[in-house]
């Protein structure tokens, strides 16, 4: 496929650098598409695959953009729509529920004025309930973009955690 001919891109130089870096890390290998997309998604602030990024990636890898879109929409860990910058994942498996993660969810909802699954108007926060992520020893806990914050058993600690995120 040839380079596209006309403009209309919201592709920022940072995104180009990100895609280029991730593609290099995966040896320009289109068969590693899922890994490439996960890595790109990690690097995008709102943790999704923006349309221009998908188009750019399709050209870098010489594959069809429909193939990328197919993969992005197939896997539930990949997103084609913007998500929160910080998704607060609260575990709702039994051990955490026993340590009262329900109260943690209620506290987060109250502090952020947000329902589970919604995103704050500025796109920063979202609360999600997820199954065990192995932080049972420090529960109740929240996982944000891979980092775990444990012992969130008071409003103060929760506020503290939120302040650390920006």
């Amino acid at each position: 496929m040839k380079p596209f001919v006309q403009k209309l891109d919201e592709l920022t130089p940072e995104m180009v650098a990100l895609v280029d870096r991730v593609v290099e890390e995966h040896q320009n290998d289109p068969t590693q598409l899922v890994g490439i997309l996960l890595d790109i998604q990690d690097g995008v602030e709102r943790h999704y695959i923006p349309e221009p990024v998908a188009y750019y990636l399709s050209q870098r890898l010489s594959i069809r953009v429909t193939q990328i879109y197919d993969v992005v929409t197939f896997y539930s860990m990949l997103y084609d729509k913007p998500r929160a910058k910080y998704t607060l994942e609260v575990c709702n498996s039994a051990p955490c529920r026993v340590k009262d993660s329900d109260t943690l969810v209620e506290t987060l909802k109250r502090l952020l004025n947000l329902e589970v699954g919604e995103v704050t108007y500025d796109g920063r926060f979202c609360i999600e309930k997820v199954p065990c992520f192995g932080a049972c020893d420090v529960s109740p806990a929240v996982r944000v973009n891979g980092a775990v914050y444990g012992h969130l058993d008071s409003e103060e600690r929760v506020l503290d955690m939120l302040r650390q995120l920006d």
Binding site: F4, V5, Q6, K7, L8, L11, Y55, Y56, Q59
Partner: peptide
């Protein structure tokens, strides 16, 4: 024909 995106400078 105008394509949705033109990445020629980047590519």
């Amino acid at each position: 024909r105008p394509k949705r995106y033109d990445f020629t400078p980047y590519l």
